[in-house]
């Protein structure tokens, strides 16, 4: 089971002088259960790509399959696909519209035609998943704080119990604590078996969380693989204006300067250990000599 994209091309305003090619042949497979990262500059085609994954836009060429079902074949129910592939847009709080948090989160399940009892159950579950108290359900979404609004909006997608969850910059504009909380919840979801696709331009976030990632540039995927594989090609990323995660940059430069340091390291903790191993404080150094 997977989302499979083959030779996907998308041209906006095709056939007019304003035609722009947003995707120039993208092939990609996202496996069930993965934590997948998608990175790239603004305008690299990330947004266009993810809107193809739940059939919001139609490919100009190429195909998109979800669990083996081609989205644009006759007989495909796009509404079902959109329930299966949940998409959380950037600044999702901008879509809130109902009078109460409950009604807003219930919008998706009600569109699915579920009985009220089940709707309520799902709203409860979704709010809990994003760490919001049930008491909030009767309040107006418009009077909540920025971070809370964002969670309500994410809950609105979770309430459809998607199998695949795509999040476009879910932490944009939040402060560090808000960011950490949201990421923690996303990680928890993934552990519970939801396949997560995280679109981000925060390399540190991506390096820390995902199991596999793809880098987009100018409508193409220019690198993909595990974080180790992708970040080992630092030059490729820098050429397209993306920076390696800070720690990875540091490790690369230290190695260039002749220190014997592994480069596939992204967290502060690992970096500290690696550096201490090589040039630790005096006692560390003597320990090293002893082992030699």
């Amino acid at each position: 089971m997977s989302i499979r994209v083959r030779d996907l091309v998308h041209i906006y305003q095709a056939g007019t002088p304003l035609a722009t090619e947003a995707l120039r042949g993208v092939t990609l497979e996202i496996q069930e259960g993965e934590f997948f990262g998608l990175i790239g500059q603004t305008g690299s085609g990330k947004s266009t790509l993810i809107q193809h994954l739940n059939g919001l836009i139609k490919p100009t060429q190429g195909s998109v399959e979800v669990d083996g079902q081609n989205l644009w074949e006759r007989g495909t129910n796009l509404k079902e696909i959109r329930q299966k592939v949940g998409l959380v847009f950037q600044y999702p709080e901008h879509q809130l519209f109902e009078e109460t948090v409950f009604a807003d989160v219930a919008f998706g399940p009600r569109n699915m035609g579920l009985p009220e009892g089940e709707v309520k159950e799902r709203v409860e579950e979704a709010l809990a998943m994003v760490g919001l108290a049930w008491e909030i359900a009767d309040r107006s979404p418009f009077e909540l704080s920025g971070g809370q609004k964002r969670r309500v909006a994410i809950a609105g997608v979770l309430a459809m119990r998607p199998k695949y969850l795509i999040l476009d910059e879910p932490t944009a504009g939040l402060d560090p604590m808000g960011r950490e909380e949201i990421l923690e919840e996303i990680r928890a979801l993934q552990r519970q078996g939801v396949t997560v696709v995280l679109v981000s331009h925060n390399m540190e976030e991506v390096a820390r969380l995902v199991t596999r990632l793809a880098v987009m540039h100018d409508g193409r995927i220019i690198a993909h693989g595990t974080p180790e594989e992708v970040f080992s090609k630092g030059e490729v990323l820098e050429e397209v204006g993306l920076a390696l995660p800070q720690i990875a940059q540091l490790m690369h430069r230290l190695r260039e300067r002749g220190l014997d340091i592994p480069v596939n390291i992204y967290t502060v903790e690992e970096a500290r250990e690696a550096i201490l191993r090589v040039l630790g404080p005096k006692q560390g150094k003597s320990a090293r000599f002893l082992t030699l």
Binding site: Q51, N54, L56, K79, R82, Q83, G86, L87, F89, P92, H94, Q95, L96, F97, F107, G108, N111, M112, G156, V157, M160
Partner: peptide, 28 residues
């Protein structure tokens, strides 16, 4: 698009239903 991703339907139904389906679009 965001509302369509949550299963909103702007195309089917009678006039009253369609007008109502515009709320999730117009309010935001």
């Amino acid at each position: 698009k965001a509302q369509m991703a949550r299963g909103a339907d702007f195309e089917t139904g009678n006039i009253v239903q369609r007008a109502k389906s515009l709320l999730p679009l117009l309010v935001p």
